[in-house]
């Protein structure tokens, strides 16, 4: 009897060792650098991500961009504005999927994938992201395509566990957050920091840095710098608000494709270069609610003074 039990026990130990070995193997075999890009809705995540993808592809890298947003418009400007069936829509229609059914090759050979999701107000988009990511792993997209970079462009705020999937379980190595100097964008960035802070110690993604977007006001860089400093993170690039971006988008293109010689294109190339050359990452220290409010109020006062100052300066010119 006890011998029998010992045998069963040994078998259990063997299978645990086997599972942990195969897990380790999976981890070491992760193909390419996986990056997740978060930020408040409408802040320019998809534009920034697509331009970084385009710049990386332009430098000769193999890139996959995965839109993790039910709106499924992450990769639009990489594909000339054409429609692409989403993973979840296709999954709904057919049980057996091929990579070709759910992907399209965009500018510079970027493999574009949209996770998709339910129509607004129905179903669970968070579970959708989870299901889509699982399916991509089952389809061995990364083994087939052998990317140098995989960029996950994730919906606005980390509203529930489903949207934390790309930064959980070691899927992405690093998360980046796109923010403007608007308080709600900073608030969303701080929420992402909370999620990273929660998952990073157990093998989740760490924070690669902050991308300051839509920089227009003079105070904006200092405000975002200050937020980064307070939270133990750093700003990896400042993307000015630019007509070139808007114009390129209207043509269904990235700036890299539509205006490769523009200053704006260089901004994105610099970001891509930073991401390529730096593997720095931190575990951010998010502000708690009262701290964030206090910080915002202080900046409210300072902006008022700065704005007044700017007006005087302009007047003197």
């Amino acid at each position: 009897m006890s011998g029998n039990r010992l045998f069963v026990f040994q078998k259990i130990i063997e299978s645990v060792v086997h599972i942990s070995n195969s897990y380790r193997q999976d981890m070491s075999e992760k193909i390419g650098k996986h990056l997740a890009i978060y930020g408040k809705g409408g802040i320019g995540k998809s534009t920034t991500t697509s331009n970084i993808s385009a710049a990386l592809a332009d430098s000769g890298y193999r890139v996959i961009q995965i839109g993790c947003d039910p709106k499924s418009d992450s990769t639009t400007i990489l594909r000339g504005g054409n429609d692409l069936p989403t993973v979840l829509d296709t999954l709904r229609e057919q049980s057996k999927l091929r990579i070709e059914d759910i992907s399209a090759i965009g500018f510079g050979g970027v493999l574009c994938i949209e996770a998709g999701g339910p129509v607004p107000g129905v179903g669970c988009a968070g579970r959708g992201i989870n299901a889509a990511v699982e399916l991509l792993q089952e389809l061995k997209v990364f083994d087939e395509f052998k990317p140098d970079f995989v960029l996950y462009d994730v919906l606005g705020d980390v509203v529930c566990g489903g949207f934390a999937v790309p930064i959980r379980d070691g899927l992405a190595d690093r998360a980046f957050v796109v923010t403007s100097s608007d308080f709600m964008a900073i608030f969303a960035a701080n929420n992402l920091f909370k999620a990273v802070n929660k998952y990073a110690p157990s093998g989740g993604a760490r924070l690669g840095g902050v991308i300051a977007n839509s920089i227009l006001a003079a105070y904006a860089p200092s405000l975002i710098d200050d937020f980064a400093e307070k939270t133990g993170t750093s700003v990896i690039g400042y993307v000015p608000r630019s007509l070139v971006v808007a114009q390129s988008e209207l043509y269904g293109k990235t700036v890299i494709e539509a205006a490769p010689q523009s200053e704006q294109a260089q901004v994105y190339r610099n970001l891509a270069q930073y991401i390529d050359e730096n593997d720095d990452s931190v575990i951010p220290k998010p502000l708690n609610s009262p701290e964030l409010k206090k910080w915002a109020r202080e900046w409210g006062d300072r902006i008022f003074e700065v704005e007044t100052g700017v007006v005087h300066e302009m007047a003197s010119i």
Partner: peptide, 8 residues
């Protein structure tokens, strides 16, 4: 799963 994602 599809009913969870898209609503049941």
């Amino acid at each position: 799963q599809k009913h969870v994602v898209f609503g049941g």
